[in-house]
Design a protein around this nucleic acid. Structure first.
Lengths: 331, 331
DNA sequence: CTTGTGCATGAAATCGATTTCTGTAACGAT
DNA sequence: ATCGTTACAGAAATCGATTTCATGCACAAG
């Protein structure tokens, strides 16, 4: 790798001048031309490590996510990446697996690598951002909120659970269950709260929570929860799945049991990009994943550029796309 | 951030001694204890940027992929990440969108950030690795090969196309089409070559390539290709999809048309992790995505640790899981 | 003609760690 | 007692860029 010293020597100027040319400071056109020629000849690219050390911040932002295998988060990642790239930043994707220890490690690395900022979907509501905040590193929370006073991009999760349940009520289902993620994950709790409100209002169950299952936010989590529900003495005739992967798991079990929609109603909070269902057989609450990523990245870039206004929280809208098919009338 | 100088001052030793303690060199137990106490008190973490600058290589490896939204690649990413993390490296995920320009930029960044190594799924077979190779940076190619003499982890793509087509022949389909990715992507070409060999051997068509469609390796690519095939004068009764997303697109179109398997035979080269199909209705060539990632990461780590043996290429096996349902007998 | 102002530029300090070089002390062998 | 070896630890050089500081020159104002 050619260094700035070699370029300086070839161009017959000092390293300071080369640096000025590279960074667009004032330099006489004459010397600038010499430097550009020398840089081109040696194929010079500034060493980012040295630059980062001196400037105390890098052109890298960390994107810390609980599950990169979930299309919801990859879609968000795309949004972040597109905005960051356009602004000259690259994005380090860090997978925490919902594990606070892994998350803590990645956040430490973000500090010690002098990264420009962090977009974080917290693994739990106990995530410790003390270090980051103390150092004044810009952070934006996405998808889930934190206990810290930082920027955030969220959506209305309760509303998502609400409209998912409501659309099933409207379609005429009588016993609507819910499967959701771990209790300590905010999105899981909120979405099931939305469901509970609807089924309670409809007077559907004596004890609604008998029809609520907590499991992992993954396909197998949806599968086991669905199997449990179907094994109940008085099983449900419809289900709200609180995230995309759980929805897939539930649908797999239903398909294997021969209970395809609309025989059994299904509403999912989250998009199902890679499924091959008949159109409009399942109600979908579309989540603005990419848009959240884009928004978070924009907010982060503003902070990196020195914006110091008080912390903001942006709440994006969901959109329900109801299934058009309805259940056969019950006897 | 506490620096090594502050720790040294607090412990009453020189910075060199602090560095030695941190890096496990010999230091008297007495001073080591002082240093550890001081480091703990100041919550010291070595600045990775400074370390990287001095050591000329970082504890970060780049994973450069054409499409992070494809579950095939995220699964591979998981494999890479798990191995890298266990060895103390973190992974920067870079998305190239199959665009050689973006790819080139990320590779340049990998150099100028002194990254420890690169795992690369090349966007095209013209990818220029000159710079990386000249600098002796370890690289491993995954999924697709390059023109350079570097380590690689591949699979037998022709075999994948072959067994996908064969399983449809065995099931009794008579006109088996193929939809594949861009011509200049090796995996696309090879998988369709496998298909061509089978349909040619079976004497299925006068001109097999009339039943071959090139499109993008994405869901909409599969959709348009499938629509074209169904609109043919003498349409196929089965199709080989050369990757997972194209398979999803094809299945979506078929479902919308009412042509669900086994009425129309479908074999996909690649797993369909998020689909909700009836079990065993579609033949799947399972690809060792995660395993490829694991293998590539291991090979890369060996190189980073100084292994200088000649370049190796590892070819992993595919496994076909045939559909169990068969078409209704044709008249 | 002198002084002041501004600009272009180079020398040198700086970022924070690692590593080489150097010196000292202790200990064993001769 | 002297020499050689080893262990330990500090001083200083180093990685490659950026940035501050200092210098010299040109030109305008007084």
């Amino acid at each position: 790798m050619a260094t700035i010293y070699e370029v300086a020597a070839l161009a017959g100027v000092s390293p300071a001048t080369v640096s000025r040319v590279v960074n667009g400071q004032r330099v006489s056109e004459e010397k600038a031309a010499l430097v550009r020629a020398a840089a081109a000849e040696l194929n010079f690219t500034p060493n980012r490590t040295a630059r980062t050390l001196r400037r105390q911040n890098s052109e890298v932002i960390a994107l810390v996510l609980p599950d990169i295998e979930n299309p919801y988060f990859t879609s968000m990642a795309r949004g972040v990446e597109d905005v960051a790239r356009a602004a000259g930043y690259s994005v380090v994707l860090c997978n925490t697996d919902e594990d606070p220890a892994k998350e803590a490690k990645y956040l430490d690395i973000a500090i010690s690598e002098n990264m420009a900022g962090v977009v974080l979907a917290p693994a739990s509501d106990h995530t410790d951002l003390q270090h980051l905040v103390a150092r004044g590193r810009p952070i934006v929370a996405v998808d889930r909120s934190t206990r810290f006073d930082i920027d955030g991009v969220m959506m209305n999760n309760r509303q998502g659970g609400l409209s998912a349940a409501q659309t099933l009520v409207d379609a005429g289902y009588r016993r609507i269950a819910c499967i959701t993620g771990p209790r300590d994950i905010e999105t899981a709790a909120e979405r099931s709260n939305g469901w509970r409100e609807i089924v309670t209002r409809a007077g559907m169950f004596d004890r609604p929570d008998d029809y609520l299952r907590y499991s992992t936010f993954r396909v197998d989590g949806g599968r086991t929860a669905m199997q449990e529900l179907l094994a109940m003495e008085n099983p449900p005739d419809a289900v709200v799945a609180a995230n995309n992967l759980m929805g897939v798991g539930a649908l797999q079990v239903l398909t294997e049991t021969g209970l395809t929609p609309p025989a059994f109603g299904v509403a999912v909070v989250g998009d199902l990009p890679f499924t091959t269902l008949p159109p409009a057989s399942v109600s979908i609450v579309r989540l603005p994943a990419r848009h959240m990523g884009v928004t978070a990245a924009r907010m982060l870039l503003e902070r990196i550029d020195g914006d110091t206004q008080p912390a903001r929280t942006v709440v994006l809208r969901n959109e329900i796309i109801p299934a058009t098919s309805v259940p056969a009338p019950t006897v």
